[in-house]
Every structure is written in structure tokens, then in C-alpha cells.
Design a binder for these strands. Structure first.
Lengths: 211, 211, 211, 211
DNA sequence: AATGAATGAGCTTTCATTCAT
DNA sequence: TATGAATGAAAGCTCATTCAT
């Protein structure tokens, strides 16, 4: 029956929407109260819904948190893949696009960063979180590694190790994010990008000329 | 003698000793269960003492956590100042000594790192933590900045900005710590140091020659 | 049906009803165990409900106690105002009705008196209680004062001070309540009323003739 | 041995002194924090001594409280018996002296009254307290009753019942004490005494002339 | 006699979870 | 699907009591 089908699809959609709404509320709450301080009542209240709603949609708090981490990664994943896709075809341009993506406001955003670090802070104690992180991050590492190798193969960088460059870049963005989170007043997006570029220029001077 | 030993453990230690013991137990517990998962009962049990002992010495859980963060920083502070003091007088040597300190096993230790990140993960939500971090970190920033400025003044580095270098180095160690915490299997101390050195070589080639 | 009854008791009552039920349970518990000895678990158990119920409805124990005192006063207030309203229009009759109300079983009841004295016993240490008491008692004082003044103006009582009479009557009922609480075996409602009447007769012989 | 004996007696004296000191501290603490709020740590601290001191001298908190109540009564007893002893030989004078004693500053003192009412507030729940109260109060009742009977036998008071008078006077002082405790700002010692005298004048006009 | 660190039972409070509506 | 009153386990915290010194 067409009507039933439509209803079903609408319902399904509505369900997805509601879950997204709850995930957004969760992010806000973690950001404001920390992973430890956040309660399901906070999330429900932030979403303007009733007490039991989170358990209804996510079964348990643990599961909600797991889904929130995945949601965060899916969001980042989108940004990451779009940065790769929408940049010029050269490896150097793509690598730079990724770095710019990492400091752009929608990614390097204190609310989201607070949640990232909240999860990382519990990661050692919660294997579930560590596994999710490992899976996604391996993917990003592979992509960056390939870009770095391409750049090296294009230039005169005999001594440079692609994995080292990848590690440094990953570490730098993580470290800059921490700075953004902990020292919001002194942190500056332009300076951060300048730091990253200064490293790229240092290792790949032919591809990243002095500005 | 077993009895004497048992009695000793239950006997009044000096207040300071007992508190240190509890702070150590707290670090272990946070590392194992996370900031949110850790309970005062865990800490007491880890220290082999009774339920009420933590409140007796630290008044409240919040205060215990605050003191733990300070204890962590005091420990790091010792390492930091010693690294500066015990290295050759040249700025380049001192800066390198600091970087080596940051990856040395007693500092770049998963147990401690888990606790650092646990606090950073709550820092946005807990101003107390943020303030403590800010106070110590400003000090380290100033010292590193001075070292970087000295190096620059000694060589032919007209284009290099000392603050940028400091920011990059700080970010890198933070990022490498995160890698150590989250990806213990792939993280490698030697590689980490190699990454850092590669950056130092890239910006200050005269002071940090190719190895 | 037993099942239905059980279900009913566990089912959501109106919020107001549930709170009243809990306030009644609180009064019973204070009466049995004293203000200090009463626990929230006692109250919940007395109400046949679960541990957390009191905090759910009253936020905290302190607040529960405050609301209990108010509940007690509202109950007394009803008795007081009804005694005034339902008695003959003459001031003397109304004043006598108030005194009779004070010794009637539903008011001069050991369970309730125990709670009154429990609060008065803490009043010096808890400003909140003192404020609540002061507010209500001022009202009763004013009403009684007006009645005493009316009686004085009606008779030949040149030397009588209305405020003194009011003070004496208030003191007497408080003192008789204490006797009822502490010496239940020797306390006698009739004797108590006789005492009060003997005073009324002594000061206002025209309005309160010898019986 | 004289020395030993002296030491012993000094020690014994010191012990009694210490206990009195602790009882005084207890009274202060109950007055400030209420029976429920007072802790043994408070008492020790108020006495300027160490944690375990109260249990050392009084075995348990319950016992301390019991002894405090007795201490309070012994103090009142002294006042009572002295008022009787030191007043003129006539019954009327002695009865008046007792009433004056009840409102004199050292007796009708908010600190002490707070403790009295704290005990009365728990009396229903704690039989020990009730028994102690009953024992002392019966004694006072008997003495006052005899005085009242003497006065009646001396004058033309055919209709007056001695027990009723005694009850009224006792109730009045209790009630005035409550007023002093709860409404310290409006309570007035002179007015209180005036109230009592007005009653004495009303029932025994020949013995207590209009002032 | 006095100390005060340590204990541990018992309390208040929080909150994820359940369930009748 | 959604609600929110109710639950009850688990936590932090308090404090009377103990005991080695």
C-alpha cells in the first residue's frame, strides 16, 4: 500500500532525524559538562524531549556514546574526503587542502574538539573507543602517506621519509587542536596554519615555496 | 616479618607520604578506568586502605582530582627543569634535551599520558583544570621561546619565527603523546624522536645536522 | 483485587498527592525517630515506595524538612481559621474557640507535637525554620490581639493589657503542648482546658464566668 | 604515699574539670548546630582538644548527650533550690522567686534554651530523655504544688485548684521560653515577668497586689 | 590522659533504566 | 513513538568509634 509505505519511510526518516538530533545534543552536553559530567537527562533536556527518549533510541548510555564517536568520525570523514576530492589533482595541493581542512572553523571548533579529547581521554580505559579511532585513523594515515610518497617521488627529497612526514603532520594537527581547546585565548587559526606550512616548506621546499 | 609489615602499612604514615600514595593510586585508577569511571573506592582499594581515607586526606573527589593534576604537573616540571639544567649550555642542546625528555619512557608513559588526556578531555568543562594547565604551560612556552630565539640569533635563520617553532614543537609532542596513547602498537619512541628531529633539522639545519 | 491495588499504589499518583503522602510519612518518621534520627530511607519505606522517591519529589532532605514544616503550619492554619470562622461572632467566644482548638485531639496530638518540638528544637540553629515560624505566628498573634482588645473594650477591664493576655495564652498553649509531649501519662486534655479557662476567668471574669 | 594520693586527687579533679569543659562545649555546639547537626568533632574542636577526647571521657555520643541533659538539669536544679532557699519564708514570696528565677538571664538564656528545646524535640523518640525530664520535673511540680496549696490555705481562694495553678505556671514559663528562643527580637524579659505576675495577681489577688 | 590517623557503617544523593500510559 | 514517574544500584561523603603512639 502506497500510503503505508510512505508513512513507513516518513517514520524511518523521522527516526533517523531524531537520532541525529540526540547525537547533536550529546555533543553539546559533552562539550559543556565533560564525558563524566554529562547525563542522559541533560541530553534529553538539551533536545527538548523527555527523560526516557535516549534509552528508547539508543538502548543504553554506553551505546549512545559509541554512536556519538562514530557520528563525529563520519562528520570528519566527510570533510576529509571532500578536501581530497575538491582540491587540485597534484598530491601537494591535496595534502595542503587536508591541512587547511584541519584548521578550518567547522572542524577546528572548540565544541567538537572538547568531545574529541573527551573520547581520547577515556580511550585507554575503553577499548571500544580505541578500536573505532584506530579504524578511521588508519585510513587517513594511508591516504596521507600516499600523498607524501607522491610528493617525494616528484621532487628531490631523497632523505625524506614519507611516514615520518605523515606522523609529524598528524601530530601537529592533534597538538594544535589541543592548543585550541586549552588555550582558546592565545590560539590563532592563522598562526596554526603558518606553523603547519612552515613545516611543509621545510621538508618539501620545491612544492611549498616560501610565502 | 609479615605482621610487622602489615602493621606498618596500616600505621600512620607521614601525612605527606600518605597523600602521595593516594595520588599515585589515583593516577593508576584514572589510567585504568578513566576520569569518569574512577571511584574513590577504587583509589582506596588500590592503595590498600579503607573507604573513607580519600575524603580524610583530600576533603572531596573534586579536590583529589585537582591535586592529582597539580601532582602530575609538578612531576613533569621536575623533568623539564632537570632537562634544561643537565644539558650542555648551548640553546640548541637544551631544546633538543627538552624534546628528548618529552619522549623518554618515564614521561611518555601510557599510564601518565592517559591521565593527561583524561584531564585535557574535561578541561573545557572544568575551568579549574584549564587554569592549572595554563599556568604551567605558559612557563614552558616562555622557556622554549627563549631557547628558540637564542638559536635564531646564533645562525642564519632570518625567516624563522621563534614562536612558530615553539608552537610546532609543543604541538608535535602533544600529538605524539596522543599517538602513543591511542595507537600503542604502532607508536615507536625512536620514530617519534626522528619526527621531531626532522623538523628541527628542517628549520635549524646549522644547529641540527642531518644524522 | 490485590493485584490491581498493588499496581495502583505503585502507579503514578498525581504529583500533589504523592508529595502529600511523603509529607505525611515524614511526619510519622520524625515523630518516631526525631529530626536527627529520621532518614530518607525511613520516609520512603513508610510510604511504601522506593529509595530515590524523596529526592525525586523534594530535591533534598533539607527541602523536605522545610516543606514539612510548612505543611504542618498550613494544617494548623486551617484549624485556626476555621475555629475563628465557625464560632459565634463575639470576640470572647472566638478567643475561647481558639483555645479549645489548641487542645483538641487533632491538634494537640503527640505525633504532631513531637514534630513541632523537633523543629522548634532546631530553630535556633536553622534560620529557615525560624523565619517560617515567625511569619505564621505573627499572624496568629495579630488575630488574638484584636480579639483581646475587643473583649477589653466591651468590659470593665481598665488595667488589662491585650498584648499581655495574648502572650500568656500563647505561652500557655505552648507549655501545655510540651506537657502533653513529655508527660503523656499525667497530661490531661480536660485539665489543660481548665487551666486555660481559669486564666480567662481570672482576667475577663465578665466574659468567662465561673463554671 | 602522700605524693601518689595528691597526684591521684589532682588527676581525679582534672578529670571532672575536663568532663565539665566538654559538657559546656557540647551545650555550645548543640545551641549552634542543633542536636542533629552537632558532631563529636565539633565538641572536641570547641573545647580545643583532639578528636578522640569525647569517646575517651564519655564512651559514646549517646552517653554524652544523656550526661549533657543531666548537667543541664543539675544546673537548673541549683537555681531552683537556691531561689527557694534564698527567698523570704512566705510561700507567696517563694513562688514569685521561682518565677523570677525562670526569666532571669542566666536561666532564660537563648543558648541554654536552644539545648532544652533540642532535647524536648527528641524526647518523644528517645525514652532516656523523657525519663530524665520526668524525674526532675516531678520534683519541681511537687514543690510548686505545696507552695500553691500554702498560699490557698492562707487566703480566701476557695475555688482555686493548686494543681491547676501549678500547671498554668509551668506551662507559662515553658511557653515564654519558647518565645524567647524563637522570637528573640520581640521577646522581652520584663513583659514576660509582667505576664506571669498578671496571672498570679488574677488568681491570688491578696498575695500579689496590683503593681 | 591525650592524640589524631584510620576505619567502615550508614547516610544522602545521583542517575541510567524501566514501564504503564 | 513518546512520556515522565518510579526504581534501585552505586556513588560520594560524614562521622562515631577505635587504637597505636
Amino acid at each position: 500500500m502506497a500510503i503505508a509505505a510512505e508513512k513507513l519511510s516518513r517514520r524511518a526518516l523521522s527516526k533517523e532525524r531524531r537520532q541525529q538530533q540526540l547525537l547533536d545534543a550529546t555533543i553539546t552536553c559533552i562539550s559543556n559538562k565533560g564525558l563524566g559530567g554529562m547525563t542522559l537527562a541533560d541530553v534529553a533536556s538539551e533536545a527538548g524531549l523527555s527523560q526516557g527518549i535516549v534509552n528508547l533510541h539508543f538502548k543504553s548510555k554506553d551505546n549512545l556514546l559509541k554512536e556519538t564517536l562514530i557520528y563525529l568520525f563520519e562528520d570528519y570523514d566527510n570533510e576529509f574526503m571532500q578536501a581530497v576530492a575538491n582540491s587540485p589533482p597534484q598530491a601537494a595541493a591535496k595534502l595542503l587542502a587536508l591541512m587547511e581542512m584541519d584548521v578550518k572553523p567547522s572542524v577546528c571548533d572548540r565544541k567538537k574538539l572538547a568531545v574529541w579529547f573527551a573520547f581520547w581521554g577515556e580511550a585507554k580505559a575503553v577499548p571500544t573507543y580505541r578500536k573505532i579511532c584506530a579504524a578511521y585513523e588508519q585510513k587517513y594515515d594511508e591516504i596521507m602517506l600516499e600523498l607524501a610518497e607522491n610528493i617525494i617521488s616528484e621532487g628531490n627529497y631523497a632523505d625524506i621519509d614519507a611516514q615520518t612526514v605523515t606522523d609529524v603532520l598528524t601530530s601537529m594537527t592533534d597538538g594544535l587542536w589541543l592548543a585550541c581547546l586549552i588555550h582558546p585565548k592565545t590560539f590563532n587559526r592563522g598562526t596554526a596554519m603558518k606553523s603547519i606550512y612552515s613545516y611543509l616548506h621545510a621538508v618539501f621546499p620545491d612544492h611549498y615555496p616560501k610565502k
